[in-house]
Amino acid sequence: MDILNAFAMFANFVLIPATAYGAQLALGALGVTLIFGILRFANFAHGELMSFGAMATILATWGLQGMGVSIHPLPTALLALPVGILAAITVALLSDRFVYRFYRHNRASPITFAMASIGLMFLLAGLIRFIIGPQHQHFADGERFLISAFEFRELTGLSQGIAIRQTQVITFVVALVVMAALFWFLQKTKSGKAMRAYSDNEDLSLLSGINPDRVVMIAWMITAALAATAATLYGLDKVYQPFIFLQMLLPIFAATILGGIGQPVGAILGAFVVAYSEVMVTYAFRQVVGLLGPADWVPDSMLQLMSTNYKFAVSFIILVVVLLVRPTGIIRGKVIER
């Protein structure tokens, strides 16, 4: 019973939150890895692209709520998500048309691209704060729990409950559906194959008649859709606040590089490794271990490796270790020429 209790506690505080977080990171990292693979640069504006999509979703949610539209018990934001996706796609395509296309045609260095993405980051950050303001927004209006800790305890008779928030389930289900659709697209459709070919070898794919502008356009559309979805899910699960997205860039990049650049499967793996490490390293295992030991005993120390405030450090350490030990990532990704 105690082992079960310990597991319930572990699941409640580590496994479930980390899985939801990992799914959100994975959707973000998939976008970064696609752009890294196709356009061959680190997109520092990706966080703001996510933020923009979530912002549009929130505005649409407010609009729907104002009209009295509701899909209770699900959050209204799910209904509004297509608006966010469209907004993010618009931003991505406009930025490609007016910023990146010029450098692409001039075959500029990845550094120039990255620097241009900093410019876009400023631009989007300003627009977002201008439109919705810098403060945080709660917009999850659905049912709070799928199963609350109390119900779980009643149901199983354990002393520790597992609470499953509705937003966590939604995150996981939506992420699964989106990923499945993405892999189907990349593996089965002509455009998807063209994208993979372009990512593998640009010159060879051009020789076989693949239209680069089309590939790039599709890559941006997918990336933006993933970004808007990821940020909306994150906002539903936790809270939406503009400044968070610059900080989220670090775990997302860590996941991308860990998984191998241009490798969608790697990005998902990497995202879950980063998410689980982040939560486990900063969780105090004191009570979990206490449940496993003799009755009424708890360890003296908190059994917490690092305070929660240093969760950036986890992504950073993963990043540096990967770059030093296996720079190509878990699944051998491409090494882009400088």
């Binding site: 910023v99 400023f122 950050a125 300003g126 303001g133």
Partner: peptide, 21 residues
């Protein structure tokens, strides 16, 4: 009026993009 202050970010972005281009 309250959001006007954030236009400085937009301005910085435009400056950087213009110079780079």
């Amino acid at each position: 009026i309250s959001g006007a202050v954030y236009m400085r970010y937009v301005l910085m972005g435009l400056i950087l993009l213009t110079v780079l281009r």
